[in-house]
Structures are given as structure tokens and as C-alpha cells.
Simulated scan of single mutants.
Amino acid sequence: MKTMSKLMTATAVVAMTAAGAASAKELKYAHFQAADLSSPKHAAALAFEACVEGKTSGSIDVQIFPASQLGGGSEIMEGLQLGTVQMAAIHDGPISAVYKPFSVLAMPYLFDDQAMAWSVMDGEFGDALAEDMLAQTGIRNFGVADNGVRNFTNNVKPVAEPADMEGLKMRVMTAPVWVTLVESLGASATPVPWPELPGALQQGVVDGQENGVTNIVNASLYQHQKYVSLDGHVFSWHAYLMSDAFFQSLNDDEKSAVEQCVEISKTIHRGMTAAQDANATAILSEKGMEVVPVSPEQKAMFRAAAQPAVREYIVGEIGADWPDRLDAAVEAYKAQ
């Protein structure tokens, strides 16, 4: 009888576990970096999965889809709006194509360092941008982590000042503001979706591109690029986005778990990416690239050429309100 009782108990536990798994809320989490712990987005995603499933006792089943498995940026943004993708860590370009005010963050040569950039994005400015995005798109932005300080690379010649950009064919993200940035410096710009970038470089469709150290290494772009110029033109972002319809379907404890675990993931993501940016010269030299330093005087030349043109474009697209708010946030940080 005791044996039978134990068997019945074990069967009941298995049945309850199976029932719990069947009723768990599925959270499809998309990102585009490789499924490798050296990839900041994937390391952060795995931390989020463990954190959420632990805090909710498995009532949320996090399923991670790395390396653009669910599609490119446009497809993921559409999926978030339709609810076919519940969550994503996605970069600036595709976000700006759906929610235009996000393009204000493409303003070049604006932030001095990560401390300034994080403070602005974690403060009133970042909160206001997220609230407006939710209202306009139905996509909830929990916050941002680093997509890396963007630098120019190419396979033709060293670039140390704007005049060196003349004649280069540069890949940019699929949002018009990036075309304006590159063309203001004298190069021609070709929008190419992220999954297609390595092939475009290998085949010579474009001469170069602009990205942070993490993405250059993660996608092995260094295999097709000889020169990298450390101009640091834009602090690029990955936003932690969720379908608001999915978020509202969660109970209060599950919502709290998601919010807490995003904060943990964001911190991991920022730290890994910022460390790679800080060691850009060593990392990229080791990969065989020729690192071209850009002096403060040369960076000022880039700023003078690019910032007015990009600002004019952004104001033409979204008005002056968001650019003015961003300028004010930067000035408030400097005044501390």
C-alpha cells in the first residue's frame, strides 16, 4: 500500500508539473546577437530567463530566439505590435522606423561618455520618451542598454577626418536619419538590414559600415574590414521592448518580476558592452584591424560637419521638441 501511495503521489506531482507547464504564459524573446555568452544581448537574455522563471515559479515560460531567428528588425517591431513576439532587445534603426522620435538619439557627437548617456536615458528624458512610445505604438520600453559607441570601419583607406570619407560607400541602419549622418560627412549611404551586413561587406556592395566594438566582433565584421576609426559618433542603444498587450495580461507579481529582471539584464548588458568599448583598440587590433585614432580636434571637425545636418533632418521629421528636450537633459547633466 505504501508503494502504491508513493506511486500515486509521484504521478500526481508529474501531472501537476505538466499542467503547470501547459498553462505557463509563453514569452518569445528575440534578439540579433549570437547565442554565445560573450554576446552581451545573449548573456543578458539568459539572465532574464533565469530571473523571470525563478521569480514566477515558471508561470512565465521565456523562450529566447537569438541571431535574428524570428526575423530582422522590421519583422520584430511588427511582431511586438501584433503580439506574435512578446519581447525583444532591439537596436535604434528599426525602432526609429516605427516610432520616429527615437531617431533623436542618432544626434551625433552628443554624449561625452557612458556615465552621461546612461544618466540622460535613465532620467526624465528617457522616461518621457518611453511613455510617448507606449502611447503611440502599444510597445512598452523598459529601458535601454548599450549597443556600443558607434565607429566607422571600411576596407579602403584610413579615416581620421571628414575629408577622408569622400568616395566611400557606407552601410547604415534602415532609418533615413543614418543616411543623413553619413552623407553629411561626404560618403554615400546604403541602408542594409543587420542580417545582410556581413554578406554586403564580403561582396563589396558597400566599402564600410558603422557599429560598436561588440557588433564588429560578434558578427565577425573585422574579417571584411581593414580600418576602424575611433570617432565615437553616436552612443547607440538596444531597447528592452515588450508588447503592452502581453504585459497587461500578466498578474501584478509577474509584472513586478519582469520589471526587476529587466533591470538586472540591462545592467549586465551595459557592463559587457561598455567594457568592450573601453578596450576597443586592444580588441580590434587583436582581430587584425588597423585602428585609426581620432584626436579631439578631428572629432570637432566631424561634429561641425554632421551635427547641424542631422539636427535639421530630425527637426524636419519630428519637430524641435524632442531635440530640445535632449539638449536640455545633456546641459542639466553637465551643470551638476
Rank of each mutant, 00 (worst) to 15 (best):
M1V: 10
K2E: 13
K2L: 12
K6Q: 00
M8A: 14
M8W: 13
V13I: 15
M16I: 15
A21R: 14
K28S: 02
F32P: 05
D36W: 09
L37S: 08
P40G: 07
K41A: 09
L46M: 14
A47E: 09
V52C: 09
E53L: 13
T56V: 12
T56Y: 11
V62G: 02
A67C: 03
Q69E: 15
L70K: 14
G71Q: 05
I76T: 06
M77D: 03
G79A: 10
L80G: 06
G83Q: 13
M87D: 02
A89Q: 06
D92K: 05
D92H: 12
D92Y: 06
P94W: 10
I95N: 05
P101C: 05
A106H: 06
M107S: 07
P108G: 04
Y109V: 11
W118E: 10
V120E: 05
G126E: 03
D127M: 11
L129V: 08
E131W: 00
A135H: 11
A135E: 14
N141P: 13
F142V: 02
D146Q: 13
N155G: 02
V156E: 00
V159S: 09
M165D: 02
E166T: 14
T174K: 09
V177M: 11
W178M: 15
V179Y: 04
V179M: 03
V182M: 11
E183K: 07
T190I: 08
W194A: 02
P198E: 06
L201S: 04
D207Q: 12
E210F: 15
E210H: 14
N211E: 14
G212K: 00
N215Y: 05
V217I: 13
N218R: 03
S220Q: 14
L230N: 10
H233K: 11
V234I: 15
Y240S: 04
D244L: 02
A245G: 09
A245P: 02
D252N: 12
S256A: 15
E259P: 00
Q260H: 14
V262F: 13
I264S: 05
S265F: 05
I268M: 12
R270T: 00
T273S: 07
D277Y: 10
A278D: 07
L284S: 04
L284Q: 01
K287Y: 01
K287M: 04
G288H: 07
M289T: 00
V292L: 03
P293N: 08
P293G: 09
P296K: 10
K299D: 00
A304M: 05
A305F: 05
V310W: 06
I314P: 04
E317P: 01
I318P: 08
G319L: 09
G319P: 04
G319M: 01
A320S: 12
P323Q: 03
D327L: 07
D327Q: 13
D327I: 14
V330L: 07
A332Q: 06
Y333K: 04
